[in-house]
Design a protein around this nucleic acid. Structure first.
Lengths: 235, 235
DNA sequence: TGAATAGTGTCTTTCAGACAATATGCC
DNA sequence: GGCATATTGTCTGAAAGACACTATTCA
């Protein structure tokens, strides 16, 4: 095979100095998802200043010079939703030169999954400045945030099908019908109960806890747990 | 459901000004893959200046203030490998505060796939400053580039299994045995010829061209093509 | 005719999907 | 008893995987 052209071999440090280039601003934006009331919800904030003043937007902020990208994302999530130790994964980096009208801003998007029982811990109630929205019923969003949301939902659908991420949206113990609901809500399609249970059990990702959930005016259900709370690929 | 805490709702523009934060440098690094001699190869360059002077590294460079991330990556690929219109996908953004000893540098990694017949178009031959390496036999790499390479190879394996990306590593027309070789080399396992052909044909992603490849001292082979040269998910 | 690769079919097992009736607890 | 949800098994079709021999060309 022919070798590679030698042009620009030193381009990592061009024009003599690392200071030779104008630096963009770098932010993280986070998509905080939860499932509530049989709907996939995302947390949005209302912007108080221009540009897009008054618009809804993803929570986000600048990456501090001494923190990693993931640290910045976790910081935002704790500030916004008051939760830590959530599932967090880098989604994509959006860097169109004109995505922010003020200046060049590159944003690294992360998505987080939070079980609905942990969200309930949040006390503040001020629906005019930060709120949960149905992912397929969001208001017009600032910047390219609608595109970021769409990318995130697609990623989440994919992950659900070939990994155990659903653990991150459920409490420690859950009924199999709750697990099925996570799949139905995110994938947007009904599933056959018998086939779903057969499949999940045969995958070996969950196990019965021995506990019983006797709430509700109907037959009690066995509670299951995920064998691991680390994301692993299945199939 | 309770609403979200209102703390830091305006954190996108904190401390009064978008200039309030020190900006990191932003680079793109590219992994240019090809298959040659039954091996998956990646293009590396040798660094001519500190840090890591003399080390091998991924090609990369600063993102110009007025170009998108993907434009920056394509520019690097054209400069390095002399090819354009290659398959290119964003891999991941690496932003550990200490990944570059000089200053804060956030790098957006992209990977590109190039058919081996297009690489052959490259004329220059200077193996001391830029060269192709077997992905599982690379020299020690600068910065966190070994980690980036590992991430890229994992992604490539995944993509191969549930998409038609293999088109991007093959010439327009190819023998089914060449296609099988792409899978075997990247996934690192031998496959049964009959089952492979049955599978590929039944997926409907390739079609015979009617042409015959009569090179070689053996029975000639039919040449196939991918029906589409856009990445699509299969299965 | 020997070397090298192309091309092809069957059997078995596994997985996916369609489908309905009974069980249990609360009111 | 009525309501609501939990729990369970069979059949069928499709796909995956194991497996070996013949065909064609060139040297």
């Amino acid at each position: 095979m022919a070798a590679i052209s030698r042009k620009k071999v030193n381009s990592l440090i061009p024009e003599g100095s690392i200071e030779g280039y104008e630096r963009p601003a770098v932010t993280v934006d986070v998509l905080i998802f939860t499932i509530d009331n049989n709907r996939l919800k995302v947390a949005l904030i209302r912007r108080g200043i221009p540009p897009f003043k008054g618009s809804w937007a993803l929570p986000g902020g600048f990456v501090h010079i001494d923190e990693s990208l993931e640290e910045a994302a976790r910081r935002e999530i704790e500030e916004e939703a008051g939760v830590s130790d959530v599932f967090l994964e880098q989604l994509f980096t959006f860097g169109d030169p004109r995505r922010d009208p003020r200046t060049r801003v590159i944003t690294v998007a992360y998505y987080a999954l939070v079980p609905f029982d942990r969200i309930a811990l949040q006390a503040a109630t001020d629906a005019t400045e930060a709120s949960w929205f149905d992912v397929d019923d969001v208001p017009p969003l600032a910047f390219d945030h609608a595109q970021i949301l769409q990318t995130a939902v697609e990623r989440l659908k994919g992950k659900l099908e070939y990994s155990n991420v659903a653990y991150a949206l459920l409490p420690l113990r859950f009924r199999l019908s709750e697990l099925q609901n996570v799949y139905e809500v995110i994938l947007g399609q009904q599933m056959d109960k018998r086939n779903f249970r057969k499949k999940i059990i045969s995958l070996g990702v969950v196990e019965p806890t021995g506990k019983i959930d006797s709430s509700g005016a109907h037959r009690p259900a066995q509670l299951f747990r995920f064998k691991t709370h680390k994301m692993v690929f299945i199939k």
